[in-house]
Design a protein around this nucleic acid. Sequence first.
DNA 1: ATAGGTTTTGTCAAGCTTTTGTACAT
DNA 2: ATGTACAAAAGCTTGACAAAACCTAT
Lengths: 295, 295, 295
Amino acid sequence: MKSMGAQEGLLRIGELSRRTGVKPDLLRAWERRYGLLEPQRTSGGFRLYPQAAVARVEAMRSHLAEGLSAAQAARMAAAAPAEPAMASIASLLEELRSALDGFDEPRAQSVLDRMLASFTLETVLSDAVIAYLHELGERWERGEASVAQEHFASSVIRGRLLGLARGWGAGSGPLALLACPPGEEHDLGLLTLGVVLHARGWRVAYLGPDTPMETLAQAAKNMRADWVVLAGLSTKRFRAVENEIADLSGEHRVALAGSGASADLAQKSGALFLPGGPVEEAKRLAGTIQPQRAH
Amino acid sequence: MKSMGAQEGLLRIGELSRRTGVKPDLLRAWERRYGLLEPQRTSGGFRLYPQAAVARVEAMRSHLAEGLSAAQAARMAAAAPAEPAMASIASLLEELRSALDGFDEPRAQSVLDRMLASFTLETVLSDAVIAYLHELGERWERGEASVAQEHFASSVIRGRLLGLARGWGAGSGPLALLACPPGEEHDLGLLTLGVVLHARGWRVAYLGPDTPMETLAQAAKNMRADWVVLAGLSTKRFRAVENEIADLSGEHRVALAGSGASADLAQKSGALFLPGGPVEEAKRLAGTIQPQRAH
Amino acid sequence: MKSMGAQEGLLRIGELSRRTGVKPDLLRAWERRYGLLEPQRTSGGFRLYPQAAVARVEAMRSHLAEGLSAAQAARMAAAAPAEPAMASIASLLEELRSALDGFDEPRAQSVLDRMLASFTLETVLSDAVIAYLHELGERWERGEASVAQEHFASSVIRGRLLGLARGWGAGSGPLALLACPPGEEHDLGLLTLGVVLHARGWRVAYLGPDTPMETLAQAAKNMRADWVVLAGLSTKRFRAVENEIADLSGEHRVALAGSGASADLAQKSGALFLPGGPVEEAKRLAGTIQPQRAH
DNA sequence: ATAGGTTTTGTCAAGCTTTTGTACAT
DNA sequence: ATGTACAAAAGCTTGACAAAACCTAT
């Protein structure tokens, strides 16, 4: 009705607050303490913010969310208006999906190359490889993916993971013994966990799918493993060897992972439950071992 | 040439002990009696050993195992860390066996590296990898090998083969579609066959273990495979899908391999029987399609 | 390379702790006892850590996991920022450079092994091997690389490429005949091109450096080559045999590659000009012949 | 191998200060 | 709107302690 020439959409503090979700009091505090914003004033003294203030406040909030202190967050928000998120892993995932769905192995390999060249191993594994496998599993349940596609994709990904695994028994870090329960054939998650553990300096011994508990116990003893990790998708397979897991927990530190494991089962058998994805849980596991080694 | 000095992580006696398997007391005794090692000390008096001490202690142990007296062994260990030897494929196989039996992945990788550096891919596969798997199978039947050993060795070898397989879908050669019959989990022979085919210029699409026949037929059709190869160890698994194989043979050239296949079954279902080992049979198969003359 | 300074978000101890999984108390203890970190302080005395502190703490933890004492681990972590446990192609190239520049052949081989385990052959060749050779050429022109270095690096790389080339005459694909013009001694690019062609299913016959045109023509005729590829760095060497190339183009498909070739020359002599790098051009060449449909 | 003493190192507590979101009075 | 106040959360320093690892000597 009246806004004049300087109509550049200047905002009063209430509106800025509404748009950013930051309370007016706090906006004033940030201005006073860190000089985050330097609004014009009306003749009456009201603050008038330019549109850019919204971006700056959002940057501030995003830095706070990253864990920075308010002082630091303000300094960064004032320095750089904003940072565009590097969304490119998503587009590469899209391309990976299309290559694997089309049985195009060389293109899949090349996408994986590019991913590994641009992102950290852990990002590639969690945001692309595991994400793809998850999605494939869901499509399979809905009957939208063929078994052939699943097999093909599995074998390409398994090859890649085993390539990254080369030499994972070497070194002097803690030793993890990895296996799937008897009857369990899905080992890609376990493989991923092993690769990340290795990247964090652990040694890994891999027994893979469908490992009898007896043999596992013996191997754990022979190799004096610091941790034994069992993973799989099937709850039933875990339940079937509940007692053996409990026995094993008496001798070694044992962790259970994958959607077949459960907090309940872990507790009963004295094992550690790893509820999350393989990358995340590998990081957590790597954090559990402090300098002392198993005896 | 000189070691960089600054870069060296010094070990305390406990860690040296863990890495060499020699108890701290004994290490101190060897130092006191024979001057085997001359560690630095921390300000508080703790011993600090350079990495090279590991090699020296291992040399000491190896000389002791040869029957030398401790004093002699120490003198020799102090003089020369160790000595390697030259290798034939047979001796390398021997070393591969010992590494895999001992769950020593890094050593196994290193043996495979040396094999591939000195011999043809096909030689390594037929005279070492397949030979080892064969032998392992026999030991397993006689109850001389544990399941853990078999799993461990399989996973190392599978990783290597899949590494050699990378990019095997690329190119312009004939396309082979590879799979195991439903229920069949042993795919290492099939993998080997695929690697050799690829080395001969073929493209390979790999569906791997336990592939439903229906899905196989569909994939073969979609990809217009020149050959479909089914392989496995179990006769029963083949028999169970005899009819489907016959159907498939109507549409594609089909070959059956592995000890589960038989001339009889192949004949009945109109497929080609590949009685020999994977390397040999891959070569034969590659011979069935003559070099393309592009002119 | 230099850090950008202004752009750095400084972390307080709690956030550093959250990101590394090391408790604040322990971080302070490591600072006090070993000087692991030297954070700035706020005016009020709070510690402010740069992002790099995360890497350093992780290095510390990784050394601890290897069994080093805290004092040693800190010393090493402070010395070397960190060893990125899982390597990118760029960091591996960095290591390859250092190994080759230091005349350290075993380490160079091991780097190449690790590259090939994690990346596609084509990526390794184009992003590492060819990149290194290119860079070496430039350093040589600027007088920054010695002849000895160039010879050493060439011989290591040539050995590796020849290893990959093993058996490349076998199979059923199109046949490429590869040679350098008379007088031309630089054949590493050509060798690389051959390796990639082979990986794509072609058969390769390699005549190597300094090949008389007459010999080449005869071989092409005898072997009924599908393509003849001539490559080299020197323009002069190409010009000198312009007429013979034209003759050859009458009988065979001929391609010219390497910085010595030119579009002009190719056009005059009726050959195909390949302006790009060897990996790229091998792929293009492989694309000129469509996958064989054996049905 | 045991015994007895020392060093190293992760953890914790006490008491105080700084930082920061929110609230309130003018 | 401004300025002040306040309390919770997070941090700082000093000091101490105990378990693990290591030493020497018997």
